[in-house]
Simulated scan of single mutants.
Amino acid sequence: MSSLSLHRGDHDIQDDGLSLHPVRDFAADWLEATPAAIVMRPVGTFLTDWVQATPMAILFRSLQR
């Protein structure tokens, strides 16, 4: 369904099947199995653009220059 994968660098770990990060693994598996993985990037982009367009962000950027 999605190519998003949050499992990083744990492919070569030899263990007895118990994950070192069960919460992270659960969240990654849940995210990959839901439409949230498809929606997250456009929503994040929208929120970033929205925050940058607020008067406070514009004022802050102009004061930094």
Rank of each mutant, 00 (worst) to 15 (best):
M1R: 09
S3E: 07
S5C: 13
S5T: 13
H7C: 06
G9P: 00
G9S: 12
G9D: 09
D10H: 06
H11N: 10
H11L: 12
D12H: 07
I13S: 00
Q14T: 12
D15Q: 02
D16Y: 04
D16N: 14
D16Q: 10
L18Q: 14
L18C: 10
L20S: 15
L20T: 13
H21V: 12
P22H: 05
D25V: 04
F26P: 01
A27E: 08
A28K: 01
D29H: 08
D29V: 07
W30S: 08
W30M: 08
L31K: 01
E32V: 12
A33L: 09
T34C: 06
T34W: 02
T34P: 04
P35T: 09
P35V: 10
A36P: 02
A37F: 00
A37R: 04
A37Y: 06
I38R: 09
V39F: 09
M40H: 04
M40A: 14
P42M: 06
P42A: 05
V43S: 03
G44R: 04
G44C: 14
T45I: 15
F46M: 13
L47R: 05
L47S: 10
T48W: 06
T48V: 15
D49P: 02
A53V: 01
T54G: 09
P55H: 03
M56F: 09
A57V: 01
I58L: 13
I58Q: 13
I58P: 00
L59W: 03
L59I: 07
R61K: 11
R61F: 04
S62F: 08
L63V: 13
L63D: 04
R65V: 14
